[in-house]
Amino acid sequence: MAVRVLGVDPGTKTFDVVAIENGVVKAEKSIDTTTIAKNPEVLISAIEACEADFIVAPSGYGVPVTRGDEVLDPRRFAIEVLLLSTEDDIRRGVEAGEVGIWVYDALAKVVDYLVKRFSDRVLFLPSVILLPTVPAYRKLNKVDMGTVDKLAATFVATHSYSQREGVDYSNVNIVVAELGFGYNAVVAVNKGKIVDGIGGTCASVGTLTAGSLDLEVVVRVERWDRWDVFHGGLFHYVNTFDMSDLAKAFERGEEPLASAFRGFIEAVAKDIMRALVTNPRAEAVMLTGRHSRLGLVKKLLQDLLKDVELLYVDPIKGAQMSKEAAQGYAAIGEGIVGGVFRDLVKHMEIEKACGTVADYLVHEKLRKFREWIQSTYKALVTHPKLCTT
């Protein structure tokens, strides 16, 4: 009997909902993020309409594979464990009119509803840093090596390359560059397993996010707010929030937009090169995400990365308009419950993910944060999956 699994990708620009059955996308919907921020019921209605057997809920920064009936307090679980935030962060962000925090609040409401409504039919997924295939030394002082949506997009990219080249998953050696509306991320896949990742808040300057910041700057700021991760990127620098406008300005040589676009390209290329250090056998760079579809982005990246082929990720069969990340959410869930994608889920060792995203923070200033996330995870999940080494 066919099992329908639905995945929800909470994107910066849109929330995408995808239902997969027998390895084929059967339903998909894209909803503007600001709409959901204002009215989470819109997303809940879209989920209900798909009539799925299992639902892979938005998972933020990730947890080891967790069922809804294992979660004791779903709202607190969403805010503190999945979003690394507090109720005070949410309250102040909403009062300040920060759309990103409105989205966090909406996501928490949706998770609370899904867990209470569907219980063990709800799944939460891990992010890159939780995978056992990534060496511990690469995780030091990191939280964001690729959020769950980046892992999900990488899952689809790995499947896509395997299908395209006619090779087993163990022969897939690629770098995946996910260029989303607000964040960029790069993930290294060696022999079909994720071995490294550079998440959006660790990557070079992004479009919305400032990316990796100079510590000399960080120590001079007395207080950071939770929503500061949504600010300081190239879009804020030029006060333009449309990448196609930057691309057109680049072609016309109009400053400062042209330089901002060039900066975006160079930032992505540098992060890809960092991933190639840990994955020198990579045979291709797979492009995915909203901004990757601009032809000029691929052309300029290829000019800088002459020794490796750049390819677009092919969508899962049946998909027409949904993002690869949403398809990946559903595909991973479908594999976990024994569907068509079970072999890739097993190969990538997704179900062996363990611990929390804060486990590898070694700086003394981060001790309280690390202990908070660890204790909260253990308190809110009935069967926490802790790392043994």
Rank of each mutant, 00 (worst) to 15 (best):
G7L: 00
V18T: 13
A19G: 11
I20V: 14
K26P: 00
K29S: 07
I31M: 03
T34M: 05
E41W: 04
A46M: 08
I47S: 02
E51K: 15
A52F: 11
G68M: 02
V71Y: 05
F77S: 07
V81F: 01
L84S: 03
D88I: 06
D88C: 00
V94Y: 07
I101W: 00
I101E: 04
I129A: 00
V148G: 01
A152Q: 03
A153M: 07
F155K: 14
G166H: 12
Y169D: 11
N171G: 13
A177M: 15
A177I: 11
E178F: 03
G182I: 10
Y183R: 10
V186Y: 12
K191C: 12
K193Q: 12
I194C: 07
G197W: 06
V205I: 15
V218R: 08
R220S: 13
E222T: 11
E222N: 14
R223I: 00
D225K: 14
G233S: 01
G233W: 05
D245E: 14
K248T: 15
A260M: 09
I265T: 09
M273H: 06
V297G: 10
D303N: 14
L304F: 09
L305T: 02
L311S: 08
V313L: 12
D314Q: 14
A319H: 02
A325L: 04
Q327C: 14
G328Y: 04
Y329R: 12
V340I: 15
C354L: 13
T356M: 09
H363V: 08
E364V: 02
R370W: 09
W372E: 10
W372H: 13
V381N: 03
K385P: 06
